[in-house]
Design a protein around this nucleic acid. Structure first.
Length: 491
DNA sequence: GACTAGGGTAAGGGTAATTAAATGGG
DNA sequence: CCCCATTTAATTACCCTTACCCTAGT
C-alpha cells in the first residue's frame, strides 16, 4: 500500500468535522479531528445521509440489521464432574480424561476468568451480599458451604484449582506491585527471624504469603546480577548436563531441578539459571544458528497449520522441533509473543482472527509495529479486510441509507481513533479499514456489532463527505448496548 | 481407628511484563 | 563519535501444580 500517497491526502483537516475524501488514485480517506470531539450535536437531516454497516457472519439478519443470535450452546451442558470434586492426584485426572471429560489446566483464559467472575457475582447477588471477599475471607467454611462448588460451574478445572484462583484474585495483599528497597530489607530481616513461615512474614509486610515466598526465591546472598561471566556459563552447562545425565551438546529443555543447578553454579539463583539456560546457553552449546526475520513468518505458518482454536492448545515442544535456530520451546513461545504484540489490540482478538491477520500482514509486507516515518513508534493496529458492497456517494443531499457489509471479525477489531483510513486494495469492493492504536473497543467474541455512520456532502467541495456521527452498537446476549457514539459538530 | 471431604502449606516449575544493556544505523 | 530507535538479555511480579499436611465428621 502506498503510504506516501496516503500521507499526501491528509491535507484536508477540518477541525471540528470528519471528512471522507477520495484522492486521485481512488483511495478513500476518513478524517476525524485530532482530539475526537465527542460531544453530542443533534443535527437534522439537511444534507446528510446515513451509511449503516452491519456485521454479518453466516447468521441471519432482521430488517433492522439486528442479528438474531444463534442459541447458546453452553446451557445444555451437564455439570462437569471435573469441577465437582477436590481432586489432587494424577490418577483422578487420568480416569476422568479417559472417560472423555475435559480437563483444563495451566493459565486461565479470559473466557474462564469471565465465567468465574460472573459465577461469583451471581452467588453473591443471590445471597444479597455485595462483596465476595466477605465470603472468601470472613465466613467460616460452614457458612460458605457450597460456595466453591457453585462458582466452579461450567469450568473444566478441579475444585482446588478454582479455589486457588479465587483466593489469589480477591486477596488484596496479592497484587501490591514492586518491592521497595525498604521492603526488601525488612523482608531479609523477617526471613532471618521466621525462616520459611511465609504467612507470618507476609502478614508483617502486608503481602501475601506466596508473594514473599516468591520474592525470597529471587534473592540469594551469594547471587551475582547482570552479565554472566564465561566461567559462570561453563559452570551452568556442566551442572545442567550433569544433572540431566546427558552428554554435553545435547539439547536439554527441562527435567532438571533448577534449585539443584543453582546450588552447583553457586553464584546465581534458580530463576537466573533457568532463564539463562533456556534462552541462550542450551542453544549455544548445541551449536544453534541465528533466528532470521523470515522465520517469523514460518512460525506463524506452522501455527496456522496446527489449526487450534485456543492459543494455549499449542504444543510448544512440538513446534520447537526441527529448527536449529530455536533456543528452547519456552524461547520460541516468547518469540511468538513478541510477534503477536506488534498488533496493538492483540488481546481483544480471537485467536484465529489474530493469526489470519498476522499472516496476511506479514505476507503482504505491511510493516508491523514501528512505522517507517519519523513519528515515534506509531504502533499500528491490525488491518482488517472490509467487504463494502456499495457506498453512497451519488445523490448528494438525499437522505440515504446504505448498507455496508463487513464480517464480524472485522468489527471485533475496530478501534475508534482520532483518524482512520479506508483505502482500497485494488480489488474493487475490497477495502481495508485501518485504525491506529490505543483506543480499542472491547468487543467480545459473541458480539455482533452494528456500525452506523452519518455523513453529508460538503457544499463547497462536493467530492468531500463530512462524517457527522459514528456509532457502534454491540449486542451482548439479549441486550443491545451502545458502546460508542461519536458526534462531531460542523464548523 | 480408618477413611474422607474440605481446606491448607511450602516448594518449585512456569508465564508475562518490565527494565537494563547491547547493537546497529544515520 | 554521538545519538537515537530497536533488539535482546536479564529481572521481577505474578501464576499454577505437586506433594504433602491437618482437621472435623462419619
Amino acid at each position: 500500500m502506498s503510504t506516501g500517497e496516503d500521507e499526501d491526502s491528509v491535507t484536508l483537516e477540518s477541525v471540528n468535522s470528519v471528512t471522507l475524501t477520495q484522492d486521485s488514485d481512488g483511495s478513500i480517506i476518513l478524517h476525524c479531528p485530532p482530539h475526537g470531539n465527542t460531544h453530542y450535536l443533534p443535527h437534522e437531516g439537511d444534507e446528510s445521509f446515513e451509511v449503516t454497516m452491519t456485521a454479518t457472519d453466516d447468521s441471519d439478519i432482521t430488517e433492522e440489521g439486528v442479528i438474531l443470535q444463534s442459541e447458546d450452546p453452553q446451557n445444555s451442558e451437564e455439570i462437569s464432574p471435573v469441577s465437582q470434586a477436590w481432586f489432587t492426584t494424577k490418577e483422578d485426572k487420568d480416569t476422568l480424561v479417559n472417560k472423555g471429560h475435559k480437563w483444563k489446566q495451566g493459565m486461565w483464559s479470559k473466557e474462564e476468568i469471565d465465567l468465574l467472575m460472573s459465577n461469583i457475582q451471581q452467588y453473591v447477588k443471590g445471597r444479597g451480599m455485595e462483596d465476595p471477599a466477605e465470603i472468601i475471607f470472613e465466613m467460616s467454611k460452614e457458612e460458605r458451604k457450597d460456595f466453591y462448588r457453585s462458582v466452579a460451574w461450567g469450568l473444566n478445572r478441579p475444585l482446588f484449582a478454582v479455589y486457588r484462583r479465587v483466593l489469589r484474585m480477591y486477596d488484596n495483599r496479592n497484587h501490591v506491585g514492586k518491592y521497595s528497597p525498604e521492603e526488601i530489607n525488612k523482608l531479609k530481616e523477617l526471613r532471618q527471624k521466621h525462616g520459611n513461615d511465609w504467612a507470618t512474614i507476609g502478614a508483617a509486610l502486608g503481602r501475601s504469603a506466596s508473594s514473599v515466598k516468591d520474592r525470597c526465591r529471587l534473592m540469594k546472598d551469594t547471587c551475582n546480577t547482570g552479565k554472566w561471566s564465561e566461567e559462570e556459563e561453563r559452570r551452568l552447562s556442566d551442572s545442567v548436563y550433569a544433572l540431566a545425565g546427558v552428554c554435553p551438546g545435547r539439547a536439554v529443555t527441562g527435567g532438571v531441578s533448577w534449585a539443584a543447578v543453582a546450588d552447583l553454579v553457586g553464584t546465581r539463583s534458580e530463576k537466573q539459571c533457568r532463564s539463562k539456560w533456556l534462552n541462550y546457553l542450551n542453544w549455544k552449546q548445541s551449536g544453534g544458528t541465528e533466528w532470521t526475520k523470515d522465520q517469523d513468518l514460518s512460525l506463524v505458518h506452522r501455527i496456522v497449520e496446527l489449526d487450534v482454536d485456543d492459543e494455549n492448545e499449542l504444543k510448544w515442544e512440538e513446534l520447537a522441533g526441527g529448527w536449529s535456530s530455536v533456543r528452547s520451546p519456552q524461547w520460541l513461545r516468547s518469540k511468538w509473543w513478541s510477534i503477536k504484540r506488534q498488533v496493538a489490540n492483540h488481546k481483544e482478538l480471537p485467536f484465529h482472527v489474530l493469526l489470519k491477520g498476522l499472516q496476511e500482514l506479514m505476507e503482504t509486507q505491511v510493516p508491523l509495529g514501528a512505522g517507517t516515518g519519523s513519528p515515534p513508534r506509531p504502533v499500528t493496529a491490525l488491518q482488517i479486510p472490509l467487504q463494502i458492497t456499495h457506498l453512497a456517494s451519488d445523490s448528494a443531499g438525499a437522505s440515504d441509507t446504505e448498507t455496508i457489509t463487513l464480517n464480524t471479525a472485522a468489527l471485533q477489531t475496530l478501534q475508534i481513533l482520532p483518524s482512520f483510513h479506508l483505502h482500497p486494495t485494488g480489488t474493487p469492493g475490497t477495502y481495508f479499514l485501518q485504525t491506529a492504536a490505543n483506543q480499542s473497543l472491547p468487543l467480545s467474541l459473541s458480539s455482533n456489532p452494528t456500525v452506523t455512520l452519518t455523513a453529508s456532502s460538503s457544499p463547497s467541495s462536493p467530492e468531500h463527505i463530512i462524517l457527522h456521527s459514528l456509532s457502534v452498537s454491540v449486542r451482548d446476549g439479549a441486550t443491545f448496548t451502545e458502546c460508542v457514539n461519536f458526534q462531531w459538530t460542523s464548523p
